[in-house]
């Protein structure tokens, strides 16, 4: 089964018809009580693209990511993943809330990696990776185990299969978390500051896995402060602040020759 090309996954996006974006946000608003966190965000991520969201804390990047897989409900606007409206069903002009089971089904196609890993501490690395395929997709235990083993090997953890998260370093835990999300064969991967909780020495091993995923053609939306990663890997970059996208475009434009003062200010602080 394994080919030794170094691929972690097969390319995604085949299920989206040509020219259709994988993620499309249209005037998305999100508020927590009186506080507006997203104020009319438009976003388009094409299949097999890596899209990086940059910006200061509290700018709405993580909230946007959490809205994309419906961990947060949006208050206005529309949000599609793979051409499907997230969390709602549209009948004519009327939106109907989806049942928890249907939302879960939508989420199973979107992988998410968290800043604080959120591995299940009572399961070993391989059990973490096998859990959702077995319980959600009803894959046989044998097949799930073989696929999990292969995935963990490909993120460099072939010798840590039976290790509990507490005995793994932060970088290793995050790589298990990536493998766990990939095990569901998602069409889209969301990364919420995946390296922010890591020792500086361990950031590289996680970024390497993500770079390989980008090369493999995975569609990814990444919230990060790693400007280098954005320059090297991203197809599109957006700077978010105050709940809006201040500037977006190809990384070489936004990161090297920014037009907006806000972007210049942000970059000067991050790169200083």
């Amino acid at each position: 089964m394994p080919d030794d090309s170094g691929h972690i996954v097969a390319p995604t996006g085949a299920e989206v018809s040509a020219g259709q974006p994988m993620v499309k946000a249209e005037q998305v608003w999100k508020s927590f009580g009186k506080l507006d966190v997203l104020k009319g965000v438009d976003l388009e991520v094409m299949p097999q693209q890596t899209y990086v969201l940059l910006g200061p804390s509290g700018g709405g990047k993580s909230t946007l990511l959490r809205c994309i897989n419906h961990l947060e409900l949006i208050n206005a606007g529309r949000l599609w993943v793979g051409g499907e409206l997230m969390g709602y069903r549209q009948k004519g002009a009327v939106l109907h809330e989806m049942k928890a089971r249907d939302v879960a089904k939508q989420r199973s196609h979107v992988g998410m990696v968290f800043q604080r890993f959120n591995l299940f501490p009572h399961m070993t690395a391989i059990e973490n990776v096998m859990e959702a395929p077995i319980r959600v997709q009803h894959v046989s235990r044998k097949q799930a185990e073989a696929e999990a083993e292969e995935l963990l090997r490909r993120v460099g953890l072939g010798d840590k299969l039976d290790t509990y998260p507490a005995q793994l370093s932060g970088g290793q835990q995050q790589r298990v978390a990536i493998a766990r999300a990939l095990a569901m064969k998602p069409k889209l991967m969301l990364f919420d500051e995946p390296t922010s909780a890591l020792d500086p020495e361990l950031v590289g091993e996680v970024l390497d896995v993500m770079k390989q995923l980008a090369v493999d053609g995975m569609t990814m939306v990444v919230v990060t402060h790693e400007i280098g990663f954005a320059k090297e890997v991203a197809d599109g970059v957006a700077l978010m602040d105050g709940g809006v996208i201040v500037e977006d475009g190809p990384p070489l434009e936004v990161l090297v020759n920014p037009k907006e003062e806000r972007t210049k200010l942000f970059l000067s602080k991050v790169l200083a």
């Binding site: 897989n69 989420r107 998410m112 968290f114 299940f120 859990e131 959702a132 569901m184």
Partner: peptide
């Protein structure tokens, strides 16, 4: 709370 979110993001239902 992150445990709940991680499980939900994997497509697990609230009961599961």
């Amino acid at each position: 709370a992150g445990q709940n979110e991680a499980a939900l993001s994997l497509g697990m239902s609230p009961t599961l």
